[in-house]
């Protein structure tokens, strides 16, 4: 837009000063609202940093739901019974729904779903590193439900009280479905643990491979985490990565024991702290996977790109048809 600024230099300086004053006052009022545990809604004033952080976090979350469909989709055509096949299809359908819901919630911050998807496909946006691990045997499907959805819930339950209203509401719904997935996954493993030695071996193998990457879903250790303190003040984050990770370990180990799994040696109950000690995670591996070196990074991105490219003509046809219908109803 073109405008002609006819103000004098003094007038401009005063206006700039006023703007800063308004912004400072706005910022103080914004923080006060958050401190009062009020929800920030799409049309409310918000600092640019808050908006950007939320777009990044919500879109990463949406991308994780979408990319997360692939490791599970890997087993849809091989699910061992009709019941398991139905459960798995329904679960993947839920993930697609969560992705859609989260993209919509992110759109309330003034960014389009097309742009967010473009960022994912261009490799500019991240998604959870867990999905760059392959699902190798059928028990992985149960373990993904139990551990990956379990870790996701631990992360997301506090987000139901996140300061941004649309995100908090999305999380409330997502958490309900994820906790259902978590129980279904665990139930599938319980069933397999009653089965043959081969079935039990699959469950142990899935646990051994997926447990540690699931712990990494909470992000780098607090000492290394770039975004934490401001996000805490803004109540986009309510607990630190390490706190949430510990909470997940404490809940999961007794579940693993109940299944009858062999627990890794470095995990020990600590009477003093009342928590499980689990030692250091392999953060080199984490960063390697973030950088693209996981077993399945390329497969995931290729699969996303293929779906997008193969479907282009379908989306174009649907748009062209809708346009023709609009023109037709206008003419009528």
């Amino acid at each position: 837009m073109y405008t002609t600024d006819l103000r004098t230099a003094e007038e401009k300086a005063k206006a700039a000063k006023d703007e800063i004053k308004v912004a400072e006052e706005g910022m103080a009022e914004f923080q006060a609202r958050i401190d009062r545990d009020e929800f920030i809604e799409p049309k409310d004033w918000m600092p640019e940093g808050y908006r950007k952080t939320l777009i990044r976090q919500m879109s990463q979350h949406a991308h994780s739901e979408i990319v997360g469909m692939h490791p599970e989709g890997n087993w849809v055509t091989r699910a061992p019974t009709l019941k398991r096949k139905l459960i798995l299809i329904a679960k993947i359908q839920d993930e697609a729904g969560h992705g859609l819901y989260l993209y919509s919630a992110a759109e309330t911050l003034g960014v389009s779903r097309e742009e967010l998807v473009r960022q994912l496909h261009a490799g500019e946006a991240k998604y959870s590193t867990i999905f760059n691990y392959p699902t190798m045997n059928w028990a992985d499907v149960g373990a993904v439900g139990w551990l990956v959805d379990g870790a996701a819930i631990t992360n997301q339950i506090p987000l139901c009280r996140c300061s941004y209203g649309p995100y908090a509401r999305a999380m409330t719904r997502v958490c309900k479905e994820e906790s259902f997935h978590q129980r279904q996954g665990y139930e599938a493993l319980l069933e397999m643990m009653k089965g043959t030695d081969e079935q039990k071996k699959m469950v142990q193998d899935a646990f051994d491979r997926l447990f540690w990457p699931a712990l990494m879903m909470f992000g780098p250790p607090d000492s290394d985490s770039a975004h934490s303190s401001q996000n805490m003040a803004w109540k986009i984050k309510r607990f630190s990565n390490d706190e949430l990770r510990q909470r997940f370990v404490d809940a999961t180990i007794p579940q693993a024991e109940f299944l009858g799994l062999k627990i890794p040696e470095q995990i020990k109950w600590n009477e003093e702290t009342g928590h499980y000690d689990f030692g250091e995670l392999d953060w080199d591996e984490f960063w390697d996977v973030v950088k693209g070196n996981g077993i399945s990074n390329d497969d995931r991105m290729n699969a996303r790109n293929e779906a997008l490219e193969d479907g282009a003509w379908v989306r174009e046809a649907a748009a062209a048809y809708a346009e023709k219908q609009r023109a037709k109803s206008k003419a009528a």
Binding site: I66, M69, H70, G73, V76, I89, I92, Q93, A96, G99, L100, Y103, A303, E306, A307, D310, G311, A312, V314, R315
Partner: peptide
């Protein structure tokens, strides 16, 4: 599943 032309 996961290969469709769009999420819908």
């Amino acid at each position: 599943l996961s290969k469709g032309p769009n999420l819908e």
